[in-house]
Simulated scan of single mutants.
Amino acid sequence: MTDDPFADLGETLEDTPDQQDESQSSQQSSNPATTSTTTKDYDGDHLEDRDPMTETAFSYEAALQRPFYARKETIENFDSWLNYELERDLNQRGYQNIVVREMTDALLRTVVEEDLVAEVAERFEQAREDAIQK
């Protein structure tokens, strides 16, 4: 038994949709009739034709799962935004097989690459001030 309360996070129910997406992705990429040749990806054994509109950017196994601690309302708002705004926008752009790990990865890269330190610090400060005023 481990002292890590998050040791079993990889075994949660949330893994099931991503794993299903991976099996669908594997089936699509193994059938040349359903996969368009747009980019090449080396997987260690051979080159495989991949379609960025249907294939995920990286596998479930390549993802690092980390816990986030936030208030219930913040998480609910984030989940709604992720599922109803971002996923809808990606779908309208023609993307299929959209998985949470890719959207989360894009979000985290945006925060870092756009250097949103000042904006995040302002939200942090505002939350502290709001807590004191209550």
Rank of each mutant, 00 (worst) to 15 (best):
E73I: 12
D45I: 13
F68L: 06
E61Y: 04
D51V: 03
E55P: 00
H46E: 12
F58V: 09
F68V: 03
A62C: 11
K72T: 10
T74M: 13
K72Q: 06
K72G: 01
D51H: 02
H46D: 03
F68T: 00
R71E: 14
S59A: 13
P67N: 03
D51L: 00
A70C: 08
I75Q: 10
D49I: 06
Y60S: 02
E61K: 02
L64E: 06
Y60P: 06
E76S: 09
R50W: 04
Y69I: 06
E73N: 04
F68K: 00
Y60A: 00
R71K: 15
R50C: 12
Y60Q: 04
H46W: 05
R50G: 06
A57E: 07
A62W: 07
D51R: 02
R66I: 13
E73S: 08
S59H: 12
M53D: 10
M53P: 00
L64W: 11
E55F: 07
F68I: 03
D49A: 15
P52I: 03
A62Q: 13
R66C: 07
M53T: 12
P52W: 07
A70L: 11
M53Y: 14
F58M: 12
Y69L: 06
T74S: 15
A62F: 04
A57Y: 12
T74D: 15
E76N: 11
A63Q: 04
L47I: 13
P52C: 04
A57S: 07
E55S: 09
D51C: 10
I75Y: 10
D45L: 14
D51N: 06
P67C: 04
S59F: 14
S59T: 15
I75R: 10
Q65L: 00
T54Y: 01
T56C: 02
T56N: 00
D49P: 02
S59N: 15
P67M: 04
A63L: 05
D49R: 11
A63K: 00
A70R: 10
A62L: 12
A63V: 08
E48R: 13
L47N: 15
T54R: 02
F58P: 11
F68R: 03
T56Q: 06
R71P: 13
E61P: 01
Y60L: 02
E48F: 06
E73A: 08
F68S: 02
T74L: 15
P52V: 07
P52Y: 00
A57D: 08
L47G: 13
F58R: 11
T74F: 08
R66P: 01
R66D: 04
